[in-house]
Every structure is written in structure tokens, then in C-alpha cells.
Simulated assay, not measured.
Amino acid sequence: MSLLGAAGIGLFVGAVVGALGAGGGIIAVPVLTYLLGQSEHAATNGSLVIVALTAAVALPGKARRGQVRWRDGLVFGAMTLLGAVPGRFINELLDPETLFLAFSALLLTVSAVMIIRSIRDLPGEGSADPDPQSRGGVTKTAVRSLIPVAGAAGVTGLLTGLFGVGGGFAVVPVFVVFMGFGVRQATGTSLLVMIIAAGVSILTGVVRGTFVLDWGLVLLFASGSMVGGVLAGPLSQRVPPAMLSAAFGVLIGVVGIITVVRTVAGV
């Protein structure tokens, strides 16, 4: 595929991140491997750069709308250290086939969860997304528990280090269920977490001397992705979150099926 095509695909990936606050890495990894000819480990490395840069560009727009809770995001992001460093070590130990079979399982699981949640939310209040947080203060019904939040942060870091994904798809539900965020504030704050988790994983790889990738290709991909992230920000304010999640869930399911078939077939 041409470098122009890489930028075009990056534009789409950025649109996903800007609209959902999640999902860029899940799409970037198979695209870098199957369409742009990167090795499995190089693709997970490149995805980390793409996710971090795209989230960094999309974050200010969310912040201007009051949809980023900085303190909670920074604390949660710091806790991703529990998993990001071990995840990086595991990534280096796995052979490419095992790595991508595990990644395929992640894709299909995320797809099923997102589709089920979106179907549940479409008829009800989830699609309206009143986002009480944007009107100030934490809702009285918010359930805060350090154990599940810390556990989710650790899993987010693990997934980031292992697969090169940002982990926003795991962070958003935790913010909504355990910390009482509205959906839009959850997606906005998840961008901050993605930057921290990806940055920690990149730094770990650099220190260990295993962070190798095609910088020219990745930066071109990331450039398109950053533009897409900025353009999709306003879109996320108009389309019901449940509809966005449903569409993304279907897309991830298709990518997951293609990934597992190609991994097993060795093509």
C-alpha cells in the first residue's frame, strides 16, 4: 500500500479515537501488519506511538468542553504502571503467532461487549448521555472502590504494553460504572490515560532497546490519525454514544475474525 494510503487509513483510525476515546490501537495493529507490511512486534510498537499522538491531539478539544477530569485521569494513568511494564516484557517473550492469536481473542471479546452494551443502551438513557458530571460534581450514586479501579488500571496497562493498544475500551466502562462519570467525560478522560499508558510502554521498550519500528511510516500514519482525531471531536457530540459503540463493535468483530483466520492460515 502507498504511503498516501497509510495516511488515509490513519485518518480513519484517528476519527475512531476522536469519536469514541478508544479503539485506535485495536485497528492500527492489524492495519500496520496486514496492509502496511509490518511485523507483529513492530506493529504493536508503532501502534503505541500512533495512539499516544492521536490521543494527545484529541485531548484539548475534550478539555475545552469540560469533558476531562484531570486529577482522576492522572491517578488512574499512574496506576497503569502496575501492568504496562509487565505487559511490555510479555510482548517481547511471545512469538508472533501466539501474540496475534491472543490479540484476536481480545478483539472478539471487545466486539461482543461493545455490541451488547450498545444494544442495551440504545432504547434507554445511555443513548441520551445526560452526562451529569458536565454540570458539576460527582453524582451521589457514584460507586467508588479502589480495588476494581486499581485492577482495571493494571489491566489497561497490561493490554497497552502487551498489544500496543491504548486501553480506552477498558477505561471508559470503569469510569462510568465505578466512578460515576457520564459517557462523554469518560471518553475524554480516557484519552489522558491512553497517553500515560502508551508513554510508559514506549519508555520501557526504549530502555530495553526493543522499541524498533519504521518511524517514517508510523509518523505518516500518525499524522493522518491526528487529523482524524481533531475532525471527529465535534462528531462525537452529535451522534448518540450507543450508536457509535455499536458501529465500532461490529467493525472490531470483523477485524478480529480476519486477524484470527490470517494468523491461523499463516498469510
Score class of each variant (00 low, 15 high):
Ser104Trp: 08
Gly224His: 03
Thr44Tyr: 03
Thr160Ser: 15
Val207Asn: 01
Val113Met: 13
Leu203Ser: 08
Gly24Tyr: 02
Gly83Lys: 01
Thr109Phe: 15
Ala105Ser: 15
Val13Met: 09
Leu217Ala: 11
Leu192Ile: 06
Val172Tyr: 00
Asp214Lys: 09
Ala152Ile: 14
Leu94Gly: 08
Val260Asn: 09
Leu3Lys: 11
Val57Arg: 05
Val260Asp: 12
Gly167Phe: 01
Ser245Val: 11
Val264Glu: 13
Leu36Lys: 01
Ala247Thr: 12
Ala247Met: 12
Glu40Trp: 06
Glu97Gly: 11
Ala128Gly: 13
Arg208Glu: 14
Val239Cys: 07
Leu107His: 12
Gly18Ile: 00
Leu191Asp: 00
Leu82Glu: 04
Phe211Asn: 05
Gly233Met: 08
Gly216Val: 14
Ala84Val: 03
Leu251Arg: 05
Asn91Val: 02
Gly24Glu: 01
Gly21Gln: 02
Ile196Gly: 00
Gly249Ser: 05
Thr98Val: 13
Gly21Ser: 05
Ala56Arg: 02
Arg71His: 15
Gln133Val: 12
Ile252Met: 07
Gly209Ser: 06
Ser2Pro: 15
Ile50Phe: 00
Gly180Pro: 10
Val183Cys: 04
Ile116Leu: 15
Gly77Asp: 06
Val85Gln: 10
Asp129Phe: 13
Ile119Thr: 10
Phe76Tyr: 10
Gly205Arg: 00
Met226Phe: 04
Val110Ala: 12
Trp70Gln: 10
Val260Ala: 14
Ile50Tyr: 00
Leu106Ser: 07
Ala152Phe: 09
Ala198Leu: 07
Ile119Ala: 12
Gly5Leu: 11
Val29Ser: 03
Thr204His: 07
Phe89Glu: 11
